[in-house]
Design a protein around this nucleic acid. Structure first.
Lengths: 223, 223
DNA sequence: CGTAAAATTGAGCTGTCTCAATCAATGTGG
DNA sequence: CCACATTGATTGAGACAGCTCAATTTTACG
């Protein structure tokens, strides 16, 4: 009973469906913007799924620099919590974030009776891995402008899948610091790149809402 | 029977144990240096495990640039073959490589009766993911010298685990091109960094064998 | 032993960073 | 609901890490 409930909830959460009646609302936790959802070195006992808002998984280096790994959007697993027993990363809320936590041991058990759950977790893990690998390629071999273009386009694609894009526009809560730290750049330079994009009529940006004005040309910049 | 055999073989392969009698030698495939083990866009039906030699998973961009993801050493799964149905990467042999392929469908089935197999695969997937994430951090936020230092040290650590390091020395088949493409650099610059390391007495290098002369100082360079 | 692959070197250049100062926006407490 | 406090955006001048493009030498190998 309980396992099935948990399993369905994970399915709901990961497919970004609203809470089913079976899943009482109080199970959803919340974190204000900039709060940590998961701390580096913290032991992990459950897997988190983002329901609302954006989160950033990141590592801080001793010299104070930060690298952000792919952002977690609604419907995403928090990858830092997927396999490791102790988190190697911080996961911090970019906006206010609602999320649900699923006990890992219970998930493991549920796995035995629900093959679809295994599929789901496998698929989610696979797309996590793919996104991190793509990030590595970007960081290693693409210019600043290409990285920014790719970030914008990939966020748009991901949001489109859950119907969060209208008329090429979507809510874009990232600060330039987030962009810089996600793409291995500095804020002043990100600023410069974004302004170039605006000047060229590729994107526009107002009130935390980003519009992609010319997706084809933006895509053409990559490679 | 067959499943158990397959499962044991994967366990053997991934723990870098020699072939057990149960696993006939002819199951081990081989690829000469520079040959592709897996081609980008190729459909994947089996998971490959490296038994001998080094392999590089990489993506080629349209502009001819290449990014290498973490190298696969003996005992490693080829990560490109782990979850995706179609490969997004090339996997090419750096040296002559011996490897074994395990049918994914069969593995899935074997999974039901062998919980240790699930553990193994999970653990292997987790360490793949961790390595790619570390690479992303290196590429985004560390200097060329730091990246090279980290590559050397992390390869050494990985090889130590399977007893392939003696007196701080190990076989190092990578060309400077591999290092450059793995670390988002160019060959001339890699050359310069390596020479600096030699001049400083941090490493030495002869006949494809690399010796870490001063691990503490090399480690101290990082962060 | 000849040929292809890899390493080395150097001069000049450029993408991106640093540092610092200023300005705008956003949130908060009274 | 305003004034301050904090956080984020913008700008500019100068610096440098790492790149480009050859040319040359060395090494590996059939």
């Amino acid at each position: 009973m309980q396992m099935l409930g948990l399993c369905d909830m994970l399915l709901d959460a990961a497919t970004n469906r609203p809470l089913s009646d079976a899943a009482p609302a109080q199970l959803e936790k919340s974190a204000a913007a900039r709060r940590l959802i998961l701390r580096s070195r913290e032991p992990i006992s459950s897997v988190h799924v983002i329901c609302r808002g954006w989160a950033a998984t990141s590592e801080y280096l001793r010299n104070g620099r930060r690298q952000i790994l792919p952002f977690a959007l609604p419907g995403d697993l928090v990858c830092a919590s997927l396999f490791a027993d102790v988190s190697r990363y911080n996961v911090e809320a970019v906006t206010r974030v609602n999320y649900r936590s699923f006990d890992r041991a219970a998930l493991c058990v549920a796995t035995r009776t629900r093959p679809d759950l295994v599929d789901l977790i496998t698929r989610l893990a696979a797309s996590q891995m793919e996104r991190i690998a793509e990030l590595a390629v970007d960081l290693g071999r693409r210019s600043a402008a290409q990285r920014v273009a790719r970030l914008i386009l990939s966020l748009m694609e991901r949001l489109e899948k859950s119907g969060m894009v209208r008329d090429q526009a979507f809510n874009f809560p990232l600060r330039q610091t987030h962009i810089a730290d996600a793409l291995g750049l500095t804020t002043p330079y990100v600023n410069q790149v974004l302004n170039t994009f605006r000047r060229k009529g590729l994107i526009s940006f107002e009130k935390r809402s980003l519009t992609v004005l010319d997706a084809p040309r933006l895509r053409a910049m990559i490679d």
